[in-house]
Design a protein around this nucleic acid. Sequence first.
DNA 1: CTTGACAAATGAACAGTGTTCATTATATTT
DNA 2: AAATATAATGAACACTGTTCATTTGTCAAG
Lengths: 203, 203
Amino acid sequence: MGIIQRKEREKEEMRRLILDAALRLFRERGYDGVSIRNIAEAIEYSPGTIYLYYKDKSEIFFALQYEAAAVKRDHLLPVADIADPWERLVEFGRRYVDFGMKHPDLYDLLFITRAPMEYIENQECWKLGMATHAFFQETVQACVDQRYFKSTDTETIAYTLWCHAHGLVSLFVRERMRMYPEEQRQELAEKSFAMIVKMAESL
Amino acid sequence: MGIIQRKEREKEEMRRLILDAALRLFRERGYDGVSIRNIAEAIEYSPGTIYLYYKDKSEIFFALQYEAAAVKRDHLLPVADIADPWERLVEFGRRYVDFGMKHPDLYDLLFITRAPMEYIENQECWKLGMATHAFFQETVQACVDQRYFKSTDTETIAYTLWCHAHGLVSLFVRERMRMYPEEQRQELAEKSFAMIVKMAESL
DNA sequence: CTTGACAAATGAACAGTGTTCATTATATTT
DNA sequence: AAATATAATGAACACTGTTCATTTGTCAAG
């Protein structure tokens, strides 16, 4: 009785089709710039069909946000193998920024977009993000434990470093760096990352 | 011939009426959550009337963004009187963050919202923002000149500090601090500001 | 094979959106 | 008071997210 399995597979393929089209369109025109009809047209189905696979537009958003969180986790994963906590922390930061620069649309989805946040705590995506954040805090804690910093306020250190990284990426993603010539932006971001690392060394 | 003056005044009053209503509604429900019909209803006029005073919805947005930039400038203005560049810089940062915390909706308008950015360079608001940014960079330059930092890379220093401040405020404004208990967020932000100041001292 | 049952896809319909414009109402000038 | 100029209207257009009765397609049983 492989029929229900095939049906399940087809259902999954359809969801994939919708998500791929939605992500591509969201990338190009933003969440509000894309209509269900646009997505339907892109996959050559009628608008009503979308609603057989996702209960509304925000659920498509949440599905994409979850995938973004997974991409981010995979991007950060190799860091876990680094034994030295300070090196691990620096590499975590580098990869965090790198993820944001390489996938501005996904970063936006995760950390900037105002989409229905009300019940985000209940989403799978939130748990994934919390796990990553916990890993980050543990790394900072390990640095504190091994006296890499003068300060012992793990939470504030972690938060301060996050603020810088998020500020760096989000100014870039939301195009608030227009006062700097375009070819200079990437370099400035790298210099700033190096600087915050230096600053953290004497923390 | 006071009639045309009165007409001009009435026109100005009408624009004020629209902006006040729009800001209140944007605050409550965000740019996309508010329709022209909502604004019209709020001021008890028909939708078409709005278009006699603003050519489209984005122009209302730009007008509000300009006002936000003016509020921000006024909030930062007292800083200019501080003679010592380091003290001036710290106070600038404190007030920048304070502005963001006190006026999250205006901060959002200025530094986060994705509204039609295409021609923002031509807007009055942009010039205002550029002037403030220039003042900030000059203050950092003054610190560099007086050997407050070991580093002499003014641009990177200014940008790094801005990244932290923007990250701090925007994580707050876009509700990405839910992993911290609400009553702790304000305190954490203050601690982080103090920490970046300490870090900057040994820059 | 045909029939009946179930699932999938449709597209018209509803209430909303930004925006335009011919029409109506008001105010000013002659 | 009549003519003119300005201001406000609200219906109309093409769009939006979403629902649902209807049609189409698939598959097992007779």
